[in-house]
Nucleic acid binder design. Structure first.
Length: 608
RNA sequence: GGGGAGUUAGUUCAGCUGGUUAGAACGUCGGCCUGUCACGCCGAAGGUCAGGGGUUCAAGUCCCCUACUCCUCGCCA
């Protein structure tokens, strides 16, 4: 027997053809005489019928068949249009409109069993939801489910479309090493001990960042790569220790050129995969605006509930404000933020108490609330009695609060207030069903977040640190502040955001050695240290480096959003758990003493 | 490292303020059935209540520890 069709191929136009199908038994419906089996492969389902009047042996074999057996059948394609129904004593339509092949069935004249199957630990079905733990343990079975197959097929399409697009735009696909030199700063690296160089280690690349800049120095002009990256940080819903980037770098370009290329790519991916027309250019938002209104640099713009910063209002009232906790926060250099939940989305006392629990989980002291009354007075709030009425009206006005609205407040350390309010905003939006729990809801709000600061002040070490990396080009009109006021220096860094997910980020690089030296100085990195850490790149920049810049898109996140998946794990064939383990292979695993000796490595963990 | 949720039949879950034999659905196995399509009907088997310790006359249920899974803060330039 040789397979003639896939299980998703046959249509009414194939009726009367003799065909051979191979596949897995999805489902068996035994009527004593007739036996129906849904035969499955990655292309779809086809109903096959065993009739003892057609072939007794095949029918007997079908009585034995069970879920997930791998079989082959030969037979004739027959219409399911009108079939004799004994119960009703007349011909009745038996088509299945839920199936692409529902117009037809294959009457089996010959059948072979290629392999039997044990009863699987969970049913291979879209209807049954086994726990993720069990599914990961038997990932090869989970991957038989059609929705997981669909996401991986979508990924494959993304790869093909990306390559097609990038090649057409004149990009070269160039490879970079995974095993490189450890560079401090940034994400924690996975280390690989070197057997040939005892005591020394490679680091797995957290991104091809430095290499792709060297490609520009070498004159390749336009580089891209679909590449694995490795980061040894804690996992999240949208973070895996190994993940894939669409990595891009270009010479002689401005920020707008990079945006144009990426907008074109996303337009193509969304257009061809989802048949959705994404309008370009994308909206742009200043980093500071994003922090102020949304509390982070990856705002979900599918809904409102914008934050309002009240710090200045409270400062202006001085000692007369009547909100001692907020005043104290402001005095200590912190900020005060509010969020207004409109009256049309009423929250019960129990619900708003739950919100308080939620923010406390993020380290908040509590969640101050105030219900706005008919004349702008506050009720149901500990602030109501003491607050200066002028301040209260000013806050109402600034928040656009109307009678019946609920105001939520956070105050304290700036970074923490932003984080808590950012998470609270999304949390509330989901609760109020302004956005779905996961997935786009059919709304695709792309956004560039631009002009962030080059440096961040590290509260712990009391020093300035690179907000992204030390090779980002500052705005020309900010270079003057490098020495005097580093916090004021904005740079050519950009993130592309979709529905609250950072799907990519990049920058225009710093190719001027003079400014580079000043940036290092601001970071407290001496010449010697810079040479040790980034020597090869700094050397390379001395030999005629073109102005260049680039970006990297998170391929897994794109795939997750494109296929409305709940988690990154659903678009990665073999993902890891939150502790970075693989439940199927049990990686990471033990190695024996000899292997360690060969690598000149000693474990400090006592053997069990 | 911190906070939260969870772990009961092969699977998904229920199991109240501690109380006699731990239930349901799906799956599995057996029987019946020529038009089903998540077929239907009848019957059966199936449990270390995650592991360990404690409180109690009595623990799936209360307490402590450990493991694992998920969400999250920190972290991810």
């Amino acid at each position: 027997m040789k397979r003639t069709h896939s299980c998703g191929a046959l249509r009414a136009s194939d009726i009367n053809q003799s065909v051979v199908l191979f596949g897995w038994v999805q489902n068996r419906r035994d009527h004593g005489e007739l036996i129906f089996i849904d035969l499955r492969d990655r292309d779809g389902l086809t109903q096959i019928v065993f009739d003892p009047n057609v072939n007794k042996e095949a029918h007997a074999l079908a009585e034995q068949m069970r879920s997930e057996w791998v079989i082959g059948v030969q037979g004739k394609v027959r219409s399911r249009g009108m079939q004799w129904n004994k119960k009703e004593n007349k011909e009745v339509s038996a088509t299945n409109p839920n199936l692409a092949t529902g117009e037809i069935e294959v009457v089996v004249s010959d059948a072979t069993v290629f392999n039997r199957s044990e009863t699987p630990p969970f049913q291979i079905s879209e209807h049954v939801t086994a726990s993720e733990e069990l599914r990961l343990e038997h990932r090869y079975l989970d991957l038989r489910r059609s929705n997981l197959q669909a996401t991986l097929i979508t990924r494959s399409k993304m790869n093909a479309l990306t390559r097609e697009y990038m090649v057409k735009q004149g990009f070269l696909e160039l490879e970079t090493p995974y095993m490189g030199k450890y560079t401090p700063g940034g994400a924690r690296n996975f280390l690989v001990p070197s057997r040939l160089n005892p005591g020394k280690f490679y680091a797995l690349a957290e991104s091809p960042q430095l290499y792709k800049q060297l490609f520009m120095v070498a004159g390749f002009d336009r580089y891209y790569q679909i590449v694995k990256c490795f980061r040894d940080e804690d996992l999240r819903l949208d973070r895996q220790p190994e993940f894939t980037q669409i990595d891009v770098e270009m010479s002689f370009v401005s920020q707008d050129d990079v945006f144009g290329i990426i907008e074109g790519l996303i337009k193509k991916l969304w257009g061809e995969i989802l048949k959705v027309d994404v309008p370009t250019p994308f909206r742009r938002m200043d980093f500071y605006e994003s922090m102020e209104k949304y509390g982070n640099d990856k705002p979900d713009l599918r809904f409102g509930l914008e934050h309002v910063v009240l710090t200045d209002l409270i400062k202006a009232q001085g000692a007369a404000a009547g909100v001692p906790m907020m005043e104290e926060a402001v005095e200590k250099g912190g900020i005060v933020k509010a969020m207004c939940i409109p009256a049309q989305y009423p929250l019960s006392r129990a619900e708003s108490d739950k919100l308080e629990e939620y923010v406390k989980g993020m380290g908040a002291g509590g969640l101050a609330r105030a219900k706005v009354g008919e004349t702008g007075e506050w009720t149901q709030s500990p602030l109501a009695k003491t607050i200066n009425p002028t301040l209260r009206q000013a806050i109402n006005a600034k928040c656009g609060a109307k009678p019946g609205d609920l105001l939520l407040f956070q105050f304290g350390r700036e970074a923490q207030v932003h984080t808590i309010m950012a998470n609270l905003r999304v949390h509330v939006a989901k609760k109020l069903k302004l956005i779905p729990e996961y997935g786009s809801g059919g709304v695709w709000n792309f956004l560039w977040v631009v002009n962030p600061p080059l440096f961040e002040f590290d509260e712990e070490t009391k020093t300035w640190a690179a907000a992204h990396h030390a090779f980002t080009r500052p705005h020309d009109d900010c270079v003057q502040y490098l020495e005097t006021d580093p916090g004021k220096v904005k740079c050519w860094r950009y993130d592309v955001v979709l529905n609250g997910f950072e799907i990519g980020g990049g920058s225009i690089r710093l190719h001027d050695p003079e400014v580079q030296g000043r940036v290092f100085k601001a970071l407290g990195i001496g010449e010697k240290e810079a040479k040790e850490k980034f020597g090869f790149l700094l050397d390379a920049l001395k030999f005629g480096a073109p102005p260049h810049g680039g970006i990297a898109l998170g391929m897994d996140r794109l795939a997750m959003l494109l296929s409305n998946a709940e988690s990154l794990r659903d678009v990665i064939p073999f993902p890891k758990t939150q502790k970075g383990t693989d439940l199927m292979t049990c990686a990471p695993g033990d190695v024996d003493e000899k292997q360690l000796r060969d690598l000149s490595v000693k474990s400090t963990v006592a053997p069990k």
